[in-house]
Nucleic acid binder design. Sequence first.
DNA 1: CTCGCGAATATGTCTATACATATTGAACCG
DNA 2: CGGTTCAATATGTATAGACATATTCGCGAG
Lengths: 236, 236
Amino acid sequence: MSAVPLHQRIRDEIEGLVRSGAWAPGHRVPFESELMAQYGCSRMTVNKAMSALAEAGLIVRRRRAGSFVARPKVHSTVLDIPDIQAEITARGETYAFRLLAAERRPADSDDGDEVELAGEGDLVALRGLHIAGGRPFALEDRLISLAAVPEAAAADFAAEPPGAWLLHHVPWTEAESRISAVGAEPAIAELLALDPGAALLAVERRTWRAGAPVTRVRQLFPGEAYDLVARFGPAR
Amino acid sequence: MSAVPLHQRIRDEIEGLVRSGAWAPGHRVPFESELMAQYGCSRMTVNKAMSALAEAGLIVRRRRAGSFVARPKVHSTVLDIPDIQAEITARGETYAFRLLAAERRPADSDDGDEVELAGEGDLVALRGLHIAGGRPFALEDRLISLAAVPEAAAADFAAEPPGAWLLHHVPWTEAESRISAVGAEPAIAELLALDPGAALLAVERRTWRAGAPVTRVRQLFPGEAYDLVARFGPAR
DNA sequence: CTCGCGAATATGTCTATACATATTGAACCG
DNA sequence: CGGTTCAATATGTATAGACATATTCGCGAG
């Protein structure tokens, strides 16, 4: 006995295929008529599942053409600062990213967090500086799990900053952010061209895809120069 | 010609009644049979509207009993730090709120922001200190619009902190938060028992209800003592 | 008066059908 | 060859009916 209704099951299965990446953005979802045959049910039942997925933003429906996995909008996850580059250029400032260090290494076995992120594979460890209008804007330390994103081994993060690269290559992630304020340590103050002890906004974000950890990043912003904005309101 | 489909119109009208507060949490929504009669349509159409509202969390549906306006969950709006008191007690620490100043006054006509918040009425201006485990936890400066919330004139904010009071009296709000880091000025450092210049996490939040501004608050947290956590993921 | 049981009722799910509407691809014509 | 028209198609909306299921209410037995 399936306690879950059929329309929910259809919805869940498709959602799983999208979120896991098995169906990439742009992939065509089966027509309602195909799903009717596959699940042996009426069109209204399929339609209920698909309408819900469309409302949730996971798929896009086009008459006559069919339904397709949506390409996630950059700002769909509020406050994710998904793409610092996009934010800065949107403000009309010039943007640059300076890669300070990059290495491929196994997880530090003393750091349970790194071990969990790495899984069976190695990590890519990056440090870089986001520069807006010629001035340091944010310092970023990032770890990427090669188990989750093997393509990251070959990516050129000097050409495309890691945040943007991940955004383009790994859609449909979930994230948890921790935000706090810290005083700038001398070495960091120098990188950001600030006085030691200046207030910094620290954002640490962990990202998963279909339950598997993908990346962990810590970004430090000069506190008074940057406002993180988050909006909460009606879905539409 | 109504370009909007009927199920959407039903949905919008009920959503408006809920968000505006015309129907308070707990209020019984008409039965599907009543709405069928009111809109002259079939049950499936009404059901589609109601199911969507239920999924969005605006109403709660109970078989045999009917549908009711939901009471918003404290953590429905992520990162709203909706209730500092609730957060602290959830961590097992003792909580106290010390009201430092409270006055009723008209808006400062030089401050366009205050004028917009006040509308036709006065403002309540509050300053208070949140105390966790006997130590200062956050300094809060708040303005409440009496035009939007007349009951606030009579509320005792020494007994119930303004954040919690608003949460209980004004449901279904939308908010925008700006988060930054600042160094503590001497007067503020003293209130929070910190050294001058210490890094503070500054959260400024504006809140609306059905488009009308309700309150504006600025909270300062000792940066290293507090993490703001925000989660972004699957709706369910 | 209390407990248990059955009837009433509102929602939950699903079907089969119908027509509307946007969009595409192909046939057709200048 | 380029543009227009038109029919095919997939989704969008809506209906009427059916049965399932949870919950409540009231009645009757103890």
